[in-house]
Design a protein around this nucleic acid. Structure first.
Length: 836
RNA sequence: GCGAAAGUGGCGGAAUUGGCAGACGCGCUGGUCUUAGGAGCCAGUGGCCCAAAGCCGUGUGGGUUCGAGUCCCACCUUUCGCACCA
């Protein structure tokens, strides 16, 4: 009997699919109803492990399923190819970022191929290629023209030793990860995209995303942080001006007993004039300035009285103006009215500094901030009202008096896209002494990244030392000018790539609007939860700007979103130092785990696969031993795909055995054919399985879809020579194909079928044939299971109850007792209730 | 602290609307084939006494119901997200 040799058949079918260009889609003339599915394009880090595989295998299984369902499925892939790691490798190992990146891309493409994943490579894109980043630059200029790209000041992490800007992840405990120097904060002029202009639309749009995980929408909503309230001016007589505050609770304004400003507030200097403690306060302000928000919070609330007062416009009382470390300059106006009776933070501050606390809302213990039930008191204009009525009334009054207006504010800040880095899209702007900031004209795009540069890791961005790049002429006046040396955040690259796939080779325009409108939005987007906020929010933002430019006719780029869970595996670390240990250095003896080389005690910890934990499972070895089909089946069988799942080396064997059994059934069927009589169990099981698997595929229940296929295979194994086994076996191959594409193609061919399984038509279940002719009914007495009876299909109530009562064991429990009630659940259960 | 999700055999996990808890697989036990088995095949496998019968059993405690893993209330644990945003 022929043995199952995955290493022989897998390359064969990978080549056959490639030769037949099975995954290529003609977007202008699709063959069927479009289905655009997309895996988030990866950063080409070089080596994929089985944890990464989950994402891509899942996508490929869906892709194959939808194709077999007759959809024109598009499944493109590309590379998020710019970014810091490649530049770090250039500094550390002397490999040019481009060279390293291209090499990694080649390897990852090879790995995708070995997994049997079908992408339409004719549409491949890599963000580091000119043909892509040219359009990134083009898009940036369009945003600039619309006032959505602007320059502003922002602090950066600066390493004084290396003379360079550091990303947050390069700062470890406040020090440079490379040279260990203390990192400073520096203010630099940088490019921003005005995402805040779209805050309201991005927030409202979330409500239309029915097929997104609730979790992701909540995270985005929190990030946008929409708050409705109003601004109010408080007069400061000693300064002869007013200070503006923002509040979401103008209904509590009668309870505002003091005011607090952020230490960075512009009026602080004037307010401190004449304060005897001024020097001390200024020292404090300086120390707070150097703290991050987190450090401020950990320090606890602190503040100082400025010595000046403001007038509460509703009580007309003088209230003290304080400075406080808990008030943030970046939000609202950097100043608040403090209502300690009805705000926990204000309450804490007031208690600490013995400031007056008054109640203006009745309903509970102070601080009381319940907006649902609280009722206003001591607030002449709104007494007796609840928040819902008091809020509009107070806003109206504030506006009538001309001391403020209703406001909606957001926590969302503008998107800082400047990176003082080489390996990214150059921002296509020029600084001219005469004309100021001038965009590079479209016909001069792309602004190319020079390839011949030195990577030292010192003196900042290599582009700043490249005279050929820096020096240019102004497009407006023709005079000498200097190029922008900042490059773009790679999230810009990924904010619109899903549209570029449709026109990946178009050199004339960013994409073909009519084709993009035909294929987008993406029907199914698949990726990790780590992109729940930034990538997905930026993509939604840029999509809206494209909509406003008339380039697309939809505002939401991704109709359905799926976040796969991570794959974990146990790693081992030293109990005392916490240092991770390689697997080959671990000795396990019952519950005692020791490090072989040192004899130290180790502890096992299950976590995400990563090189630093030495717990990655490389697919190459696994595939060499069991084949890609086994890895695919196991990966999808291991757990529901959205859940975290622990990889088990033993578990893989189960998938391998299953495929081995499917193989043996096929070999048997091909050799002997079917001589025995048709087995009605097989036909029933086949239709039941088709029904179950189809439904489970649609619901992403791959683990139970596979278990249904195992059941069908087990049923076939009980009677492989039945005359109807072949038909059921072919259906099994088709349904197994999305999970195990290679073995199913081989067996399909072995059984003399024409064409690919991939291009065959997904089987359809006949409900009439699913029906069992004998129905097993569970019998309970007083809700406890006491027996089972069989009745003919279709089951009748009277018949079922009569059969139940005549069951020996059941009779034992009801004899001589009064029957109170007989419950019948059609086709499933009888419950006889007797008086005890 | 706030918000969300989840707690089921030794393990991963099944169980549309409340209706036979533990499908499927791993592991384990026994058998079989074998020079050999970390391969294959067959059987068994929630706990309590070997079996039958029975009793117990889905984080804990209550409740609703003929019937609860599923619904309601309170609590415990874990994971994730947010965390001075006025």
């Amino acid at each position: 009997m022929t043995q199952y040799h995955p290493e022989e058949i897998e390359p064969k079918w990978q080549k056959a699919w490639a030769d037949a260009e099975v995954s290529r889609v003609d977007v202008a003339n699709p063959d069927g109803e479009k289905y655009y599915m997309l895996n988030m394009f990866p950063y080409p880090s070089g080596d994929l492990h089985v944890g990464h595989g989950r994402n891509y295998i899942l996508g490929d299984a869906l892709y194959r399923f939808f194709r077999m369902q007759g959809r024109a499925a598009l499944n493109p892939m590309g590379w998020d190819a710019f970014g810091l790691p490649a530049e770090n490798a250039a500094i550390k190992k002397g490999i040019h970022p481009r060279e390293g990146t291209l090499r990694n891309i080649e390897n990852m493409k090879r790995q995708f191929g070995r997994w049997g994943i079908l992408y339409d490579w004719s549409k491949e894109i890599a963000s580091c290629n000119e043909s892509y980043y040219k359009w990134n630059q083009w898009l940036f200029i369009r945003l600039f023209e619309r006032g959505l790209a602007y320059r502003g000041k922002a602090p950066v992490n600066w390493c004084p030793n290396d003379q360079t800007v550091l990303a947050n992840e390069q700062v470890i405990d406040g020090r440079c990860e490379r040279c260990n120097a203390l990192v400073e904060q520096r203010e630099l002029a940088q490019w921003f995209l005005k995402i805040t202009d779209y805050a309201d639309r991005l927030d409202a749009g979330l409500d239309t995303l029915e097929h997104w995980p609730e979790k992701v929408k909540v995270m985005q909503r929190n990030w946008i942080g929409r708050s409705v309230g109003c601004d109010v001016e408080f007069q400061v007589p000693s300064l002869g001006k007013s200070i503006r505050i923002f509040t979401t609770r103008p209904d509590t304004i009668y309870g505002a007993t003091f005011m607090v400003l952020a230490p960075e507030h512009p009026d602080v200097a004037a307010l401190l004039a004449g304060n005897p403690a001024r020097a001390e306060i200024e020292t404090w302000i300086e120390s707070v300035r150097n703290q991050t928000n987190l450090e401020r919070q950990e320090a606890g609330k602190a503040g100082f009285f400025t010595g000046k007062t403001a007038i509460n416009p509703f009580t007309n009382e003088e209230i003290p103006i304080w400075l406080g470390n808990f008030v943030l300059m970046q939000y609202g106006t950097g100043a608040i009215m403090a209502v300690p009776g009805h705000d926990e933070r204000d309450f804490e501050f007031a208690t600490q500094y013995k400031l007056p606390i008054v109640r203006v809302v009745e309903g509970g213990e102070l601080p009381y901030s319940d907006k649902e039930n609280g009722v206003c008191v001591h607030s002449p204009l709104i007494n007796g009202l609840k928040y819902a009525q008091a809020l509009p009334k107070m806003i109206e009054e504030v506006e009538r008096r001309g001391i403020g207006k209703g406001m909606v504010r957001y926590r969302l800040r503008d998107w800082l896209i400047s990176r003082q880095r080489y390996w990214g899209t150059p921002i296509p702007m020029v600084y001219c002494d005469r004309c100021g900031i001038v965009p590079v004209p479209d016909d001069q795009l792309p602004v190319r990244l020079p390839l011949d540069v030195q990577f030292t890791g010192k003196r900042g961005n290599p582009l700043e030392h490249d005279a050929g790049f820096m020096n240019t002429v102004c497009a407006k006046c023709g005079g000498a000018a200097r190029r922008e040396t900042d490059t773009m955040d790679t999230f810009v690259d990924s904010s619109w790539y899903y549209a570029r796939y449709i026109s990946a080779r178009d050199d004339e325009k960013i994409f073909d609007t009519s084709l993009v409108n035909r294929w987008l939005p993406v029907d199914q987007y698949i990726g990790g939860i780590e992109h729940a906020i930034l990538h997905l929010l930026y993509a939604r933002f840029i999509c809206r700007t494209l909509f406003d430019m008339g380039l697309v006719n939809f505002e939401e780029p991704f109709t359905r979103l799926f976040n796969q869970g991570v794959i974990t595996k146990e790693g081992y670390k030293q109990a005392d130092t916490g240092a991770w240990v390689t697997l080959d250095d671990v000795t396990i003896d019952g519950d005692v785990i020791t490090q072989t080389s040192t004899g130290k005690r180790l502890v096992a910890e299950v976590g995400k696969m990563s090189k630093s934990r030495f717990n990655v499972v490389p697919p190459d070895e696994l595939i060499a031993r069991y084949g890609a089909d086994t890895e695919r089946v196991y990966t999808l069988f291991i757990a529901p795909p959205e859940k975290e799942a622990a990889w088990s080396d033993e578990g893989v064997v189960g998938a391998y055995r299953f495929l081995g059994r499917v193989w043996n059934l096929g070999v048997q069927a091909a050799a002997s054919g079917q001589q025995a009589d048709a087995d009605p169990r097989i036909t029933r099981k086949m239709h039941q399985t088709i029904h179950a698997v189809t439904q489970r595929m649609e619901r992403f229940e791959f683990n139970t879809a596979i278990s249904a296929l195992m059941e069908l295979s087990n049923t076939l194994g009980e009677n492989p020579a039945a005359a109807n086994a072949r038909e059921a076996y072919l259906a099994l191959l088709q349904m197994l194909h999305p999970f195990a594409p290679h073995i199913t193609e081989e067996l399909w061919q072995m059984l003399g079928q024409q064409g690919f399984v991939l291009t065959s038509k997904w089987p359809v279940a006949d409900p009439a044939l699913m029906q069992e002719d004998v129905v097993t009914i569970a019998v309970q007495v007083n809700g406890k299971l006491r027996g089972q009876v069989e009745v003919k299909h279709p089951p009748q109530k009277e018949e079922a109850i009569a059969a139940a009562k005549s069951n020996d064991n059941v009779a034992k429990w009801i004899d001589g007792k009064e029957i109170v009630k007989e419950v019948y659940v059609p086709g499933k259960l009888v419950n006889i209730v007797v008086r005890q």
